[in-house]
Amino acid sequence: MGKYILKRLFSLIPIIIGISIIVFLIIHLVPGDPASIILGNNATPEAIKALNAKLGLDKPLIVQYFDWVVHLIQGNFGTSVQTDQSVLPTLINKFLVTFQLTLLSVLIGWIIAIPLGILSAVKANSVVDFILRIISMLGISIPNFAIGTLLLLILSVYFGWYPPIDYVNFWDDPISALKIFILPAITMGIVLSAGIMRMTRTSFIETLNKDFIRTARAKGNPEGTVIVGHGLRNSMIPIITIGGMQIGYLLGGAVIVEQLFSIPGIGQYILNGIYHRDFPVVQGGVLFISLIFVFVNLIVDIIYCWIDPRIKY
């Protein structure tokens, strides 16, 4: 197990280098001179030159890259052009908010999806199954912001309820924080649950056809024990795979949902960076989320290996 983890860690090195190159190149994809685009039309040539020097854009490309990487390793993700604040501490603070949102979304997604997926599999090809499959297909056919906006519409117009606007920290005031997080989390949870439900159904049907399920039934186990105790455990791997793949969706989706519900998370921070052409923020944010995504995938792989030791490769 230790050897496997080490091997996987080493294989991440080229990926991380590749990610850093692509993120580094973002600012060089900007048509024209980035500094004059950041500063706008009225900037003086001196100001442009100063900003270019500050961003290190006046050096040769390869030197710029190595300078940037050395700074990254030292924990220096640059400073925001807009606020002059260091990017990394802000990213970490904002990420904690996004993390809470993500956790709640996953929780809601799984609570909806696993029981419904199992129901769909146990009643395969019945009317219930058909309706559930249509619902899950609808769920992957509508973007999260549409679900979020529709939820807001229904709650505000028909129930007169508006989500609170001012953000509070979960640890200071859990109930108010939950009121803020619940709608965005339901929004993302609905989209997540559609994918998990489909996978749970497929995986479960496959497991239920296996011999050991027949044996478990033949031994006179109650149906509930057969389904949860034997079926669920053995169908978990594909379900966890989908869960792992969805982390990327969640981290990306947070950009949109945080914007929609005014949650001051990492997504909103990056988006503000994009709107204000604050490239250090955009680069730092994209790099930060991608690194987290890569490591979460590693953890998912290690979990497989732990659930099913046959998967070592």
């Binding site: 990926i15 994809l29 994009i274």
Partner: peptide, 23 residues
């Protein structure tokens, strides 16, 4: 390996980053 690197970004985030740069 290049494809692995592109895969390592959450989809929407990579699209956002490209649009952020290109306008």
């Amino acid at each position: 390996r290049t494809m692995d690197i592109l895969f390592a970004f959450p989809e929407i985030l990579l699209a956002l980053a490209i649009v952020a740069a290109l306008g």
